[in-house]
């Protein structure tokens, strides 16, 4: 029982992240509105980023900005005192790339709306089928 509780306490964070990923993936698959799909994609992206940040967390450590100055220069920084900065670096760029992909995805959605007059995936597909019959070789 004690071991199970320990397991839950140390892993609950990851499980919530996995639940968030599942929400995002489910929205991407089942929602028919394109903007809803894009929101699902963003939730999946931020959940993956949260997973990486959780991996970088370190108990009893402080933020990765080194103490510097006269008093602190006497002893070199120790790795156990600072949170692992590497996931932060990778995810910082990932967030900005995520907003660029969001911009391109929304531009595509606006273009699709201009041509079809709807954002609903089923309606767009229903409009596409007769056109392919007309324009046959």
């Amino acid at each position: 029982m004690e071991a199970l509780w320990e397991q839950i306490l140390t892993k609950a964070n990851y499980w919530m992240t996995i639940a968030l990923m599942m929400v995002g993936l489910y929205a991407m698959i089942t929602k028919r509105n394109l903007v809803k799909k894009i929101i699902g994609m963003n939730i999946l992206q931020t959940a993956v980023i949260l997973m990486f940040i959780s991996i970088g967390a370190k108990r009893g450590a402080t933020i990765p900005i080194l103490k510097h100055g006269d008093a602190a220069a006497a002893h070199a920084p120790r790795a156990v005192d600072y949170i692992n900065p590497l996931p932060h670096v990778l995810m910082l760029t990932a967030i900005v790339v995520a907003v660029s992909t969001l911009g391109v995805a929304l531009a595509l959605a606006v273009k699709i709306y201009q041509q079809n007059g709807t954002l609903d995936e089923a309606d767009i597909l229903a409009r596409q089928v007769p056109r392919s019959h007309e324009g046959g070789p």
């Binding site: 980023i49 940040i53 970088g56 995810m91 910082l92």
Partner: peptide, 8 residues
Amino acid sequence: AIMGAVDV
């Protein structure tokens, strides 16, 4: 911010 990833 709680997890200490201030830049992110």
